[in-house]
Design a protein around this nucleic acid. Structure first.
Ligand SMILES: [Mn+2]
Ligand SMILES: [Mn+2]
Ligand SMILES: [Zn+2]
Ligand SMILES: [Zn+2]
Lengths: 143, 143
DNA sequence: CACATTATGATAACGATATTCATAATTAAA
DNA sequence: TTTAATTATGAATATCGTTATCATAATGTG
């Protein structure tokens, strides 16, 4: 039985004495219904199409709550914009980032994960999270 | 016989029809004489102690030139500020970053490097550069 | 030296994000 | 279901790192 993103978020809301709102639910839905790596601006534009009354600030504020509640995670690629991805379904820390078309592909490699742990241990370091980005040209852009 | 950072930079300057200046040399010296990961602000403050006439803009512009000339490299950790490190001595892409005291330790692992290449190849991806950050608590902060 | 060109520093502009504030919506109590 | 306290909202403004503008100064080549 899996706790859906929605449940997690609204549990977080009530646990912290916050209140539900139409906007928060709309933003959450928009975020969950889209593939990873949306920026605030992209979410805002997507929402505004059907709900022109939602404010930019509310998107910012709600995304901050999604991060605090643990169902979203911030990502910083090269451009100035913060992007978000969902955590349910597992952390996605490892990406191929195309420097020409900005395409982003996720990957994961068990051996690398294990080696990261060994390296940290050898420094007495306790890993909380990690990021591995390979920047370059995607197959399409090389052609 | 190694080309010093200074030589590389001023070669770059003349090769591109630019001009030497007292400020550029001071900024370069300040950068080279400090350990990695200085931000613009930190460099500016360090310089201003002895040379109160140097402008913020010039530090920005000069750091951009250092990056273009290949002796410096931008880094974006979590905070809003861009930081720079020297390249002479090899690229340093892999770091342990302490989320409590912000200590940064560099590491490198041959196997991981090799696996990165294999992963990229399997996606038809051409790597230009990469970053691997392990975030967590350093030995000191765990104690 | 002359003079064309680039560099400088102060200031203003910029874009992403955060904060303020008056008003609206939510929630729990009565 | 009303009430009243509390939180949320959207518009506007502020903030912060960074970049652009511009008048003046320094550089360097002939
Ligand atoms: Mn990973
Ligand atoms: Mn590496
Ligand atoms: Zn591409
Ligand atoms: Zn630490």
């Amino acid at each position: 039985m899996k706790r859906t993103g929605k449940k997690i978020f609204f549990d977080f809301i009530s646990k912290n004495g916050l209140k539900r709102s139409r906007q928060r639910e709309l933003i959450l839905d928009a975020f969950l219904s889209t593939d990873r790596h949306m920026s605030i601006e992209e979410l805002y534009l997507k929402l505004r199409a059907r709900h022109p009354d939602i404010g930019y600030s509310t998107v910012y504020r709600t995304m901050r709550l999604l991060v605090e509640s643990g169902i979203a995670r911030e990502f910083h690629f090269g451009d100035g914009q913060t992007r978000f991805e969902h955590l349910p379904g597992g952390e996605r820390n490892d990406h191929l980032v195309c420097t020409r078309c900005n395409a982003i592909t996720q990957f994961e490699n068990e051996t690398i994960e294990k080696l990261q742990g060994e390296i940290a241990a050898s420094h007495g370091f306790l890993i909380e999270t990690h990021k591995l980005k390979l920047y370059g040209l995607c197959a399409g852009c090389r052609a």
